[in-house]
Design a binder for these strands. Structure first.
Lengths: 207, 207
DNA sequence: CTGAGATTAGGTCGGTTGTCCTAGGTGTCT
DNA sequence: AGACACCTAGGACAACCGACCTAATCTCAG
């Protein structure tokens, strides 16, 4: 019922509830959580302002729903890469390629995960840890890829390095609005990935 | 007159004006520009709210003054490194070391430059370009160090790489509140710096 | 067709925001 | 002492925020 064009935001939720989540998701990304207001979301959806409080008790509750929604979407994206990518290296390159594929949006609004976590951390917001799970999702997924490459003992560190790399590129590409910089950094990290993984071939996989 | 404990915020400015700038600087960093309010700044300084508008016409004007203040401070910091560091490599390592020295604040509030630029970019704020100059300041300074190492043709790319690295580390260290991660990344980038600069010794400096 | 529950619209509330205005205070110079 | 520029306090303003409430509307089973 709530499936289809909206991508199945929630299972038992109503249509309006799902539309609110999707619209809030976008506006929280484009304007930041605090700056995005009910009035904006309502106007974009063509619904009444007071209508929100039938589906959500507070704004924070919407934020929680948005984060949960993002978690589901991210999980399915990672699962998709798991099926598409032949080798763990291919899959990791899928991650790196987000910077190219979503280049335009990242240049305009930054990384959805990074900017949200930064805002919530600064405000010491209760949903801080919930948003952090988005990062953890990528971290664990990347770690598993490196583990499968026989880099078990440093897999987590490599995962964090890649995560940090993507955040740095996102931040700078948005402030400098520089397309070429992104390409340079992606090339650089791809070389790094090759060197790390070929080094892994020398070290025999201990399983 | 306006010098001394405040570090000489402006030349012709009054004392109160300077105190507003210093306090706003801190609060804009800790809470974000939009979230920080006049009431907070006034309370922290023990002055009246309406008093602001004698020194500044709008909040954006305060922001401009804060950014200008940061630009001056940053410039003097870079100049200091120029004197302290024996070699360009030493100076670059001074830059990297901010992540350690200011580690606690960065874990709590993120990078002052990165988070401000991210917020202003997202809001499409007029002061966007002004804040961007903070990044440019570091970029040009780093570039010059690499040029002095005889890496002229790729100096700007190396500078941006280092800048991106610092931003990535700042973002992740604040969301994960992870001290060890920062140390790992700093070690990693220091090795990278060594490999880049020793490679430079092989290539003779063309001056 | 009717009635009960699910859903929505729109007004309202208290609080906060940036902005503006004006009366009053402070110090300095003639 | 008087005059004048500089500075400050505190209230008032409209606009906006999240939150709440209630009446109207829709949906659908009985």
């Amino acid at each position: 019922m709530s499936d289809g064009a909206l991508g199945g935001v929630s299972v038992g939720g109503s249509l309006t509830r799902d539309r609110i989540i999707v619209e809030a998701d976008q506006l929280f990304y484009e304007q930041g959580f605090e700056h995005a207001s009910f009035a904006q979301i309502a106007k974009a959806l063509g619904i009444s302002r007071g209508n929100f409080y039938y589906h959500f008790k507070t704004k924070d509750e919407i934020l929680d729903a948005v984060i949960s929604h993002r978690l589901v979407r991210t999980r399915s994206m990672l699962d998709g890469w798991e099926l598409e990518g032949e080798t763990p290296i291919d899959r990791v390159r899928s991650f790196i390629n987000i910077l190219i594929v979503n280049g335009a949006k990242i240049r305009r609004y930054g990384c959805p995960v990074g900017t949200l976590c930064a805002e919530l951390t600064k405000l010491n917001h209760p949903a801080r840890d919930h948003a952090k799970e988005l990062f953890t999702l990528f971290r664990v997924w990347l770690r598993r890829q490196f583990e499968q490459l026989g880099l078990g003992d440093e897999a987590d560190e490599l995962a964090m390095h890649l995560l940090g790399f993507s955040q740095g590129v996102a931040t700078l590409s948005s402030t400098f609005n520089d397309d070429k910089f992104v390409q340079n950094e992606v090339n650089r990290i791809n070389e790094w990935l090759t060197s790390v993984t070929t080094r892994a071939e020398v070290q025999p996989e201990i399983l």
